[in-house]
Computed example of a mutant assay.
Amino acid sequence: MNLIQIILLFTLIVPFCIAEQSVVDYCVANLTLPKTPGGYPCIDENKLTSNDFVFTGFHSPGNTSESVFKSSVIRANDDTFPALNGLGLAMSRIDIAVGGVVPIHTHRVSEIIIVIEGTIIAGFIGTNHTAYYKTLYKYDVMIFPHSLLHFQVNVGDTPALAFVSLNSANPGFQTTSLALGANDLPTEIVSKITLLDEEEVRRLKAIFNGTNDLIL
């Protein structure tokens, strides 16, 4: 490829790259208006203050005693921290009691975790069914690629604390056990598509308030 061709290619690519960039510095979400696939409409920037760009929800631990998994996730996303709207960022505080877990789940985006206190086993399962997992200690960091199933387990003798960052203002969160137990699919269908016996499906549905209707 000669210099003229390179210049021509560059002139074709650059406009598309610029088009992907934001035309505003920020777009603090107006939560009183409907959300769209691109996020929330913006609050008039003349009405914003420094407080709109600060999130204080991570100060206190989450209540792990109310969860069957003995864990708590406090999320800073565009619904709870409107300044993240359109910026492609979110964070969560994760508290895990002794013996607790963040159950296997998935997001539509990638996630990075840093352990602040405690000892956890964290991992993900690739699409080739390989499990990548590791015991993480204070200040260890691990990445979970987008859309892959991943989890955390507190294997220490003290509560664990970690923070995660995700590359979306609304990354989504689907837990496998909750998806199986909270749905309104007939029990026998869930049993057939998962190979779980119907008794176990009913147990999950009882925990997560799903229905147990049978096919007529």
Rank of each mutant, 00 (worst) to 15 (best):
M1W: 05
L8E: 02
T11V: 05
I13H: 08
I13M: 12
P15I: 14
P15N: 15
V23S: 09
V24C: 12
D25M: 08
D25G: 15
D25T: 10
N30L: 02
L31Q: 05
T32A: 13
L33R: 12
L33G: 03
P34H: 11
K35S: 01
P37C: 02
P37N: 06
P37L: 07
G39F: 02
Y40K: 00
Y40F: 13
I43Y: 01
E45A: 04
E45N: 12
N46I: 13
S50A: 12
F53M: 10
F55Q: 09
T56S: 13
S60T: 08
P61T: 05
G62T: 07
T64Y: 04
F69C: 10
F69E: 08
K70W: 10
S71K: 10
S72R: 11
N77Y: 05
T80S: 15
F81T: 07
P82F: 03
L84G: 00
N85G: 04
G86S: 15
M91P: 04
D95T: 13
I96D: 00
V98L: 03
V101F: 11
P103W: 03
I104R: 15
V109W: 00
S110L: 01
I112G: 11
I113W: 03
I114N: 09
I120N: 15
I120P: 06
F124S: 00
T135A: 05
T135V: 13
L136V: 07
L136Q: 03
I143D: 11
S147F: 01
V153P: 04
N154M: 13
G156S: 04
D157K: 00
P159T: 00
A162Q: 08
A169G: 05
A169Y: 00
A169Q: 02
A169L: 03
P171C: 10
P171H: 03
T176Q: 08
S177E: 10
L180M: 14
G181C: 06
A182D: 04
L185W: 05
P186T: 11
T187A: 08
T187V: 11
I189K: 09
V190F: 01
L195A: 15
L196T: 01
L196V: 11
E199T: 14
E199Y: 11
N209Q: 12
T211E: 12
D213K: 08
D213C: 05
L214D: 04
L214C: 05
L214H: 08
L214A: 14
